[in-house]
Computed example of a mutant assay.
Amino acid sequence: MEELWIRQDPIRLDQVLKLANWVMSGAEAKMVIQEGMVLLNGEVCLQRGRKVQVGDRVDFEGQSLLVKKLPSDMAES
């Protein structure tokens, strides 16, 4: 499972897909989310603006990632 390190918590689901390089645009993220292709913590999520928290798991097309928070000393650099 991959890890996605974020500076701010929470983050929108569509932003997670873009940061993970799973989609190329917000429009593509919206499409795959609305088509039920994205799981948040094991459940289909149809809301692109859904808030994703540190510790959440996101799955898309056989790929998984765990959202983690950058330590504050690393987030400033």
Rank of each mutant, 00 (worst) to 15 (best):
M1A: 13
E2L: 10
E2H: 12
L4I: 05
L4T: 05
L4K: 06
W5M: 13
W5V: 08
I6S: 06
Q8W: 13
Q8Y: 15
D9Q: 06
D9P: 10
D9N: 15
P10L: 02
P10G: 02
I11G: 06
I11A: 09
I11T: 09
R12Q: 11
L13M: 00
D14W: 01
D14G: 05
D14T: 01
Q15F: 07
V16N: 01
V16C: 04
V16Q: 04
L17R: 02
L19W: 08
A20S: 14
A20R: 13
N21F: 14
N21D: 15
N21P: 15
W22A: 04
S25G: 09
G26W: 03
G26L: 10
G26T: 09
A27G: 15
A27D: 11
E28N: 06
E28W: 05
A29L: 05
K30S: 12
M31S: 14
M31T: 14
M31D: 14
V32M: 11
V32N: 04
I33F: 09
I33Y: 04
Q34G: 14
Q34V: 10
E35K: 15
E35A: 15
V38L: 03
V38T: 01
V38N: 03
L39H: 11
L40V: 09
N41C: 02
G42K: 03
G42I: 04
E43R: 14
E43P: 07
V44G: 11
V44M: 13
C45P: 10
C45L: 03
Q47C: 09
R48G: 02
G49C: 10
G49E: 10
G49S: 12
G49Q: 08
G49I: 07
R50C: 09
R50E: 03
V52I: 11
V52Y: 00
V52H: 00
V52Q: 00
V52C: 05
V52T: 02
Q53F: 12
Q53P: 13
V54D: 04
V54T: 11
G55V: 06
G55A: 04
D56F: 03
R57V: 13
R57W: 09
V58W: 02
D59P: 06
D59A: 13
F60Q: 05
F60E: 01
E61C: 14
G62M: 05
Q63N: 15
Q63F: 11
Q63G: 13
S64A: 09
S64C: 05
S64G: 07
S64D: 02
L65P: 01
L65E: 00
L66N: 07
V67C: 07
V67G: 05
K68I: 03
K68Q: 07
K68E: 06
K68L: 09
K69F: 02
K69W: 04
L70R: 08
L70W: 08
P71R: 02
P71V: 02
S72L: 14
D73A: 13
D73C: 06
D73E: 14
M74Y: 15
A75L: 01
E76T: 09
E76H: 09
S77K: 12
